[in-house]
Design a protein around this nucleic acid. Structure first.
Lengths: 334, 334
DNA sequence: AAAAGGATTGAAAACGTTTTCAAAACCCTT
DNA sequence: AAGGGTTTTGAAAACGTTTTCAATCCTTTT
């Protein structure tokens, strides 16, 4: 193993191989117009000196970083990990680096993230975080950062967006349920701080029920498995049935586990539906009926759109992923 | 909203406020020795022009990026997301950005990641990826990048490491089982491409059994819930009992679900243990007995160690997290 | 009123690249 | 051997900051 070395610069490579900076630069960037002989000579000294170009200096000179900023609330949700995974796949394929910004659902953090995205000099940004609103994104945009936004319809010069369309499928789920004679009272489980998607779903839930003139409930919960589990253990002391709409799999699982552990049958007594399904919907028991959007695909698509946007070749500035209904064993097939 | 603007530079700020670059720089960096009057004047034009310093240029000038490289196989595992989450928490607190490098379990990617970590000019790196071996890490290190490695004991000038100690707990689990009269045959479920941790666990499993002179099995599997589930559905056609050691929760859940769905009782007929437990161990049914290491804590610790290493203040170059046994309902309490 | 001393400012070099433009070298052709 | 046209090469400016060092400006003090 070599010892720790001081950074070797292009200047030293030039010196050592008896050529100019410009020539070394041409070799590094595989531009033509270099004799095979000099190329080899330079490559040899690059190898010998262990020279690696400084990405920083390159970026400063070229005004490109091949770096993309990703803004998420936290890496800790399965559907966000999936999303990230799709992004990393394409980043790898297309030679981009990713800089991760997590806001942790905090407005304060969101503001500091905006600053950072601007100063970091990314080539583009993908934002999947409800903490940032239109103004924030337009601010980023005003600094010429091409941006793809997930789940927020934002129009702008260098902005594209992807819609995650749960509402329509959700409305259909509810109306079908009543039309086919569903008897249980539906309850929407509202979790704290879950953002725009939950809010929109809740609105869909309320609107649809009001339009149909049906009774409904809204239950407030913490966004955590254990809290929800114990809340519902209490709940099921008094109520012995219901159809519960949960925001994510872990919340849905908490409800069905609480039901089962209190002697209720799922789905006969208690039905549970998970809005944002992940692979865990298949793993828990009873398996969860849920909507599915393949978040890895969303991530990939976001990257492709962003790259087109960077190259000013994005024709369709928006795109939509429809939620797909997967019926499993936590609801009754009417 | 403003229109898209060309980047405003420090030079323009200097011009507009009638001072020199140096003074503007001092204002930006909140260094002392600037009259309140000039400070205000400069701050006002910064505001007016919407100037944001270029992180690139700053980094080039100061030779610091406040950027840390994170190398992981993929964001798609729950324990890695937890780890990332711990890291982002500290990064935020300490003002670091994170650049994410995913190798996707590919040697080829690993090599390109090493190059990138070097050229990206990070202030430090955290590596939690078995695809990188000692030589890779020493190579990064030879370019003066302080590095913390998870789960690989690497000694070096600017390297620290964190051990995830499952082996000892695992050995104790096995010996206790037999000592207390456990009767089922133990089987280690080997999944493909799962890295060093699985390999070490497997070795512990084999060694301990050989030392005790006990019979055992090794079963090969794909690292996916669905494949494992269907493999074990077949398996349970022929075998009606066993004690299975699975690598992660989703594999363990696949086994217990296969057992349950084929009419076997867990834990009476089939026992299952998950080596690397996550929050899902509590969610699936029966709940999974497992080892737990709080990966968010590991991530935080890695960051703290790295920051100390960067400041050349890291006294203890290594640290160890012991796996903690959580007994639940997928195994019998002897 | 002058000198001393400290605080504030600015000029210029440095960080490590790319890129433009002109000069130099080469290869053909005549 | 000279001319023309390519190719290959190098000098120097540019990217947007920080930082060093010397110069200037205030206060005090005498």
């Amino acid at each position: 193993m070599d010892n720790i070395k001081e950074r070797v610069t292009i200047y030293q490579v030039a010196q050592a191989s008896g050529v100019s900076l410009a020539t070394v630069s041409r070799v590094i960037n595989k531009q033509g117009n270099v004799t095979a002989a000099t190329r080899e000579k330079v490559e040899k000294t690059i190898e010998k000196l262990g020279y690696k170009p400084s990405g920083l200096a390159q970026s400063l000179a070229t005004n490109r970083t091949t770096n993309i900023g990703i803004v998420i609330p936290s890496a800790n949700y399965v559907y966000i990990s999936n999303f990230l995974n799709g992004i990393t796949d394409v980043a790898k394929e297309k030679g981009f680096s990713l800089t991760l910004f997590a806001t942790s659902h905090s407005r304060e953090e969101a503001i500091s993230v905006i600053e950072k995205v601007i100063t970091t000099h990314v080539d583009g940004a993908i934002i999947f975080d409800d903490e940032l609103d239109v103004d924030d994104i337009m601010k980023i945009n005003s600094y010429s950062v091409p941006t793809i936004v997930i789940n927020n319809k934002i129009q702008g010069e260098r902005v594209g967006y992807i819609t995650l369309a749960y509402e329509e499928a959700f409305r259909r789920l509810i109306t079908d349920y009543y039309e086919r004679g569903g008897k249980k009272e539906m309850a929407f489980v509202h979790v704290h701080d879950a953002g725009r998607l939950l809010a929109r779903s809740e609105k869909t839930f309320l609107d649809t029920h009001q339009k149909l003139g049906r009774l409904y409930k809204v239950i407030n919960c913490d966004d955590s498995y254990s809290h929800t589990y114990s809340d519902f253990c209490d709940y099921f002391k008094n109520y012995k049935s219901g159809y519960f709409i949960a925001y994510r799999d872990s919340i849905a699982a908490a409800i069905e586990n609480a039901a089962t552990d209190n002697g209720l049958r799922v789905p006969e007594d208690v039905e549970v539906f998970s809005l944002v399904g992940t692979k865990y919907a298949k793993i828990v028991r009873p398996t969860l009926s849920s909507f599915i959007i393949d978040m890895a695909e969303v991530g990939k698509r976001a990257m492709y759109m962003l790259i087109d946007l960077i190259h000013r070749e994005l024709n369709d500035k928006s795109c939509r992923f429809d939620a797909h209904l997967e019926k499993r064993n936590s609801t009754i097939d009417l």
